[in-house]
C-alpha cells in the first residue's frame, strides 16, 4: 500500500539558519507516527515545512501529490490537517465559530454531524461553545485546535505537541481519543512530542530528532524499549 505521506531529503530553516537537514520519514495508511525530540530539535520546524508555512527543499508527497511548491492553503485543501502548537485559535471567534472554520470546506449537510463529533470528542468544550476562544484555558484551547483540525476530515493530521500545557490525566484522555479517532476513521497522524511516554503508547512508528537530523527510528515499542530513548526521553 502506498504511504499517505512520504518525506525525502527535507531541508528547511529560517532565513540563513538551517534547522532541518535531510529528514526522511513515511506515514502509512491509517498509521500514527511520532517524532520525539527535545526543545529546539526541529520538531515544529518539521511540521511547518510540511504544511507550507516556511519554505523547504526536498520532496513531500501526500497521497501521490508533491506538496513542495504549493501554498499552505492549497496543501490543506489536498487533505493535510495541522493542529499548531499553543495559541493557534481564533481568539475573538467563539468556540463554535472556531470549529466551523475547520469545517468550511465540508458539504453543508455534513457540518452538524461533524460539530457533534467534535463536541463528542471533547465534551469539556460543549458548555463553552459560545465563549470567545481567547477566554479558554491553555488546555481547552489545545483541545479546540485539535478538534478544529479534525473538522476538516484530513487524510493526514499533523499534531504539534498536543500534550503541551495539559494535565497528565487530560493528556492521557487526549491520546486515547486520538487513538480512537485513528482507529475509527483511519485518519493518519504525524505527531511531534516531548512527552515520549504518552506519545509512544499510541504510536505505530517513531523517530527521534536531534539537531535537525533523525538519529533513531523504529516501531513504538522498539523505541519505548531502547535504552537511550528511555534515558533521554522517558527519564528511566
Amino acid at each position: 500500500m502506498s504511504p499517505v505521506l512520504e518525506v525525502r531529503g527535507l531541508t528547511a530553516g529560517y532565513g540563513s539558519l538551517t534547522v532541518l537537514r535531510d529528514v526522511g520519514l513515511t506515514v502509512g495508511e491509517g498509521e500514527i507516527v511520532v517524532v520525539l525530540g527535545a526543545n529546539g530539535a526541529g520538531k515544529t520546524t518539521t511540521l511547518r515545512a510540511l504544511s507550507g508555512l516556511i519554505p523547504a527543499q526536498g520532496s513531500v508527497v501526500l497521497s501521490g501529490t508533491e506538496l513542495l511548491g504549493r501554498k499552505a492553503d492549497a496543501r490543506a485543501r489536498l487533505g493535510l490537517g495541522h493542529a499548531p502548537e499553543g495559541r493557534g485559535t481564533f481568539t475573538d471567534l467563539t468556540v463554535d465559530e472556531n470549529l466551523r472554520m475547520g469545517g468550511l470546506r465540508l458539504p453543508r449537510n455534513e457540518l452538524p454531524a461533524a460539530l457533534d463529533q467534535a463536541y463528542g470528542l471533547f465534551p469539556q468544550l460543549t458548555p463553552l461553545r459560545d465563549r470567545a476562544a481567547g477566554r479558554l484555558s491553555g488546555g481547552e484551547q489545545q483541545m479546540l485546535t485539535v478538534a478544529r483540525a479534525l473538522m476538516a476530515r484530513p487524510r493526514l493530521l499533523l499534531l504539534d505537541e498536543p500534550s503541551m500545557g495539559l494535565a497528565p490525566q487530560i493528556t492521557a484522555n487526549l491520546f486515547a481519543e486520538l487513538r480512537r479517532v485513528n482507529a475509527e476513521s483511519g485518519t493518519a497522524m504525524l505527531l511531534v512530542e516531548q512527552n515520549a511516554a504518552a506519545a509512544l503508547t499510541i504510536a505505530h512508528h517513531g523517530h527521534v530528532l536531534e539537531s535537525g537530523h533523525i538519529v533513531l527510528s523504529g516501531t513504538g515499542s522498539q523505541l519505548a524499549g531502547n535504552p537511550s530513548v528511555r534515558r533521554a526521553y522517558l527519564g528511566v
Binding site: S51, G52, L53, K71, A72, D73, A76, R77, G81, H82, P84, G88, T89, F90, T91, D92, L93, E97, R100, M101, G102, L104, R105, R148, A149, A152
Partner: peptide, 24 residues
Amino acid sequence: TRLGLAIRGASMNPESSRLLGVDV
C-alpha cells in the same frame, strides 16, 4: 455565512486560516 466567517478568521489569524485551507 461561510464567506463572512472565513473573512473574519483570515483577518484574525491568517496562519491558522491557511492551515484550514482558507485562501487568505
